[in-house]
């Protein structure tokens, strides 16, 4: 009766009753994850929480670059082998390719290897030009063979879906919820969010954009009724170089941080995925970030 095999990696999942909604929380993809459910039905809330959690864990298990058994590790383990990808992974690789094209190579799903020399821990550890040069040869979507769902990298190259996977998971979870219920939910994975539908008992789900100056306080509140919000950039990750704070946003073409990039760019759009893509591309424009975003979508930039 309880002999069903249970997966490992079980993390505490909690559901709390709030004044007029349920707050479900769990941990996935390296960040706290929440789902806010506009309902008084605890049973429903519990069910939706588990739906969201299982979907998030499914995507994490498949695409995390940290999990041993993930598809991404499998590819990175044997980069020069031709891997035939499943439909979902094909779709996100295609998406990464599109962003690579429209960012003219600044965004690149093969750029994760720069992490070997850049550690954004607030110290002044700057890699040498030679170190970066060495890594740079391992980066570049143009070196990849990507034909009809089959991916072949060059030796030692790697891919990851950082900057895509979490946003994708938020939207995927929202879609999963709508398969089960029509109640309004806000899915929030470490600040990247989307709603399933407009809430009934309030104007919108209130999101605070966290201040980079004063952690924990909001510089702006968004009333989210549809679509998603995502933030690119991170307050707590930077390096100091010649007295200047270098952003953690690396230009995949050079291996160097984008100069004069905003500290954070928050974008609201019709989905979390779109918001995330716009925010990431804007950051990669450096000081032209704002110029890039004007007319594209509602945005909030902190320099």
């Amino acid at each position: 009766m309880t002999n069903a095999p249970q997966p490992f990696g079980i993390r505490k999942t909690a559901l709390r009753k709030m004044p007029d909604y349920f707050l479900g929380s769990f941990f996935a993809m390296g960040c706290p994850c929440e789902v806010l459910i506009e309902s008084a039905d605890q049973r429903l809330a519990q069910r939706l929480l588990l739906v969201v959690r299982d979907e998030a864990w499914r995507i994490e298990a498949k695409w995390s670059r940290y999990l041993k058994s993930s598809l991404v590790q499998k590819i990175n383990h044997q980069p020069e082998k031709t891997h035939t990808l499943d439909e979902e992974t094909r779709a996100i690789v295609d998406y990464g390719q599109t962003l690579w094209q429209i960012s003219e190579g600044r965004f690149d799903i093969t750029s994760g290897v720069y992490r070997r020399v850049w550690s954004f821990d607030g110290t002044a550890r700057i890699p040498s030009e030679a170190q970066i040069d060495e890594i740079r040869s391992l980066v570049g979507w143009h070196q990849v063979v990507w034909i009809d769902g089959s991916l072949t990298l060059q030796p030692e190259m790697q891919i990851d879906f950082g900057g895509l996977g979490k946003e994708y998971a938020v939207d995927a979870c929202c879609r999963k919820i709508t398969e089960h219920s029509t109640v309004s939910c806000l899915v929030n994975f470490g600040g990247d969010c989307a709603v399933t539908s407009a809430p009934v008992h309030r104007a919108g789900w209130t999101l605070g954009i966290e201040s980079i100056v004063c952690t924990g306080s909001a510089v702006h509140n968004i009333e989210l009724r549809s679509g998603g919000v995502a933030t690119s950039g991170n307050v707590h990750r930077f390096v100091l170089h010649k007295g200047k704070r270098l952003s953690h946003v690396i230009d995949a073409r050079t291996g160097w941080p984008i100069s004069d990039a905003p500290q954070t760019v928050t974008v609201q759009s019709s989905s979390c995925m779109e918001a995330g893509a716009l925010a990431t591309l804007a950051c990669l424009q450096g000081k032209r970030a704002e110029h890039f975003l004007i007319e594209e979508a509602p945005y909030w930039i902190q320099w």
Partner: peptide, 25 residues
């Protein structure tokens, strides 16, 4: 990039395609 008007549209199209692939999968 200077055809920036189209960027949001390109991303919207790519996202729609991504999510429909996911539904199919």
């Amino acid at each position: 990039l200077n055809k920036k008007k189209s960027i949001a549209a390109v991303i919207a199209t790519a996202t729609a395609s991504l999510m429909s692939q996911a539904i199919a999968a």
